[in-house]
Design a protein around this nucleic acid. Structure first.
Length: 464
RNA sequence: GGCGCGGUACCCAAGUGGCUAAGGGAAGGGUCUGCAAAACCCUCAUUCAGCGGUUCGAAUCCGCUCCGCGCCUCCA
């Protein structure tokens, strides 16, 4: 197996993964603020990192995978007044919906952590920053002093001086420097709050991810990830406050960022108003199609959402399923302990380990399917062994890409038996030249989502 | 204004110094077939936005130009 190489935003280089602990990879990805239905953009990182985990595990690593929910913040409070329910209920509701969406897409559970359940760790961190001179208190708020970190800007590769020119938001007079950011915010009347040394309040954005990642994974964990739109200011601020807290530059070793999903040539974003609920896409095209669509572009490039493209993905996936179904029906189920095709496995592995090149990995899968189809069309006698290898190889790849066999709904033993009977009856009709009747059977089955295909190998069936 | 990313066939998309520029979708022709579908075979970029340069050799490196996008404010 090739070494895993990945692109690091911090150094702007592709580096070889050398985990802090040789057999264990620790990953923290910034989750979301649950304040609305998850859109397709939210699913990109989730699906991608689901594949990352599966691949690292395939390589033999144990993977610690942590994702947070920022379940208290300004937007949740705003949403709360809009919906007329408590902030905690808002968060709970949208976390629930998000988790359901992940399940629909076949994303495995992470270790999920919540801000509201970790106030102690957050307050402790803020306190230490204040004590160390990296933060200051102003009327119940606490701000991080960016000028206390000379390397501030190293992740997003910008300098404080360059940014001042563009900063045109109303600068809070209480801030020493315009780029200083809130670690703790004093509660206003009626807002949810937690007690702290600076009075009742809540954490600012950014601090939760530092506190939670360090608490769950410890200093120098391997990979910190998120969408590109988090590079600045979120991740930049995380680095600054974490390194200030630790007293040394040992926060995360590698920073990975996935590109934005776009809709109508703009970033899919709630504030832009151009969002498509993830669930809607899944309901229209199926989970597998959405998943394949999201993996069909390299994770760092932006990807443009369109129904046409997801429909294409659905078509491509159907071809894969059709081939595998046919092979199983013609050759029987492959030996689960049998060999895989080394050459195809190598193609796939090479792509996956080179910064998780999922389009390349998908191409490798198509390579297997192409050979399997050739074999099915060939008609030679001694094909079963090779076919078994290819089916195993393809299914192994499908598993790593997260296309579970039962994701689209398993037909089950009974359906399989029934279909064998129906196909048998229909073939008798055809032998008797009762074509009108046979065609009707085929048409009727199509209505319920089952496609019959007649070939020299016999009749096979699959779901549409 | 600052920082950054990208422009590869009809569409999507890999490839970032060297065998004939992956793969998918769409399209056209053919084989097979009761029909349909699928599958298979063939066709589909002498060329990688444009112009210069470096090199024995570039889609890949450098410079300029044009176009699109992201961040700099909440964002996955």
């Amino acid at each position: 197996m090739p070494a895993v190489r990945l692109y690091d935003t911090l150094t702007r280089q592709t580096v070889t993964l050398q985990p802090r602990d040789p057999d264990r990879v620790s990953i923290y990805t910034c989750g979301l603020t649950p304040q609305g239905a998850a859109h397709v953009g939210h699913m990109r990182g989730a699906v991608f990192f689901d594949v990352v985990r599966r691949w690292l595990e395939e390589l033999g690593y144990e993977v610690a995978f942590v994702q947070n929910f920022t379940d208290i913040d300004d937007k949740i409070i705003r949403r709360s007044s809009e919906e007329g329910i408590e902030p905690a209920e808002v968060a709970k509701k949208y976390v629930q919906l998000y988790l359901e969406d992940l399940k629909l897409l076949g994303v495995r559970p992470a270790k999920w952590v919540y801000v509201t359940e970790n106030m102690d760790a957050i307050i402790e961190m803020v306190q230490k920053l204040v004590e160390g001179g990296h933060a200051y208190v102003a009327e119940g708020d606490v701000y991080f002093r960016v000028e206390s970190m000379p390397e501030y800007g190293k992740l997003s590769h910008r300098r404080l001086n360059d940014m001042q020119a563009g900063a045109r938001i109303d600068v809070d007079e209480r801030k020493e420097h315009p780029m200083d950011f809130a670690l703790w915010k004093a509660a206003k009347q009626g807002e949810p709050s937690w007690d702290s040394p600076w009075g009742p309040g809540r954490p600012g954005w950014h601090i939760e991810c530092s506190a939670l990642s360090l608490k769950e994974l410890g200093p120098n964990f391997d990979i910190h990830a998120g969408g590109v739109d988090l590079v600045f200011p979120h991740h930049e601020n995380e680095i600054a406050q974490s390194e200030a807290y630790l007293g040394r530059p040992e926060f995360a070793r590698i920073w990975m960022h996935w590109g934005a999903v776009r809709l109508a040539e703009r970033k899919m974003s709630k504030s832009e108003g151009n969002v498509l609920a993830a669930r809607q896409a899944v309901e229209t095209f199926g989970s597998g199609a959405v998943r394949l669509f999201l993996l069909s572009t390299g994770y760092r490039s932006p990807i443009e959402y369109s129904d046409e493209r997801v429909a294409e993905a659905k078509q491509a996936l159907a071809r894969v399923h059709a081939s595998l179904d046919r092979a199983r029906q013609v050759f029987g189920d492959p030996d689960p302990a049998g060999p895989k095709s080394d050459a195809h496995v190598a193609n796939f592995s090479q792509a996956m380990s080179e910064d998780f090149n999922t389009p390349g990995a998908i191409a490798a899968l198509h390579g297997v399917i192409g050979e399997l189809n050739d074999l099915l069309a060939d008609g030679a006698e001694d094909r079963a062994g090779r076919a078994s290898e290819l089916v195993r190889t393809a299914e192994w790849m499908m598993g790593i890409l997260g296309f579970e066999a039962d994701q689209e709904g398993d037909f089950g033993q009974l359906t399989t038996e029934l279909m064998r009977l129906i196909v048998g009856w229909r073939n008798e009709m055809r032998r008797e030249r009762l074509y009108a009747f046979a065609d009707r059977v085929r048409d009727d089955l199509k209505e319920v989502g089952i496609v019959l295909e007649d070939s020299v190998e016999g009749t096979t069936w699959r779901r549409s």
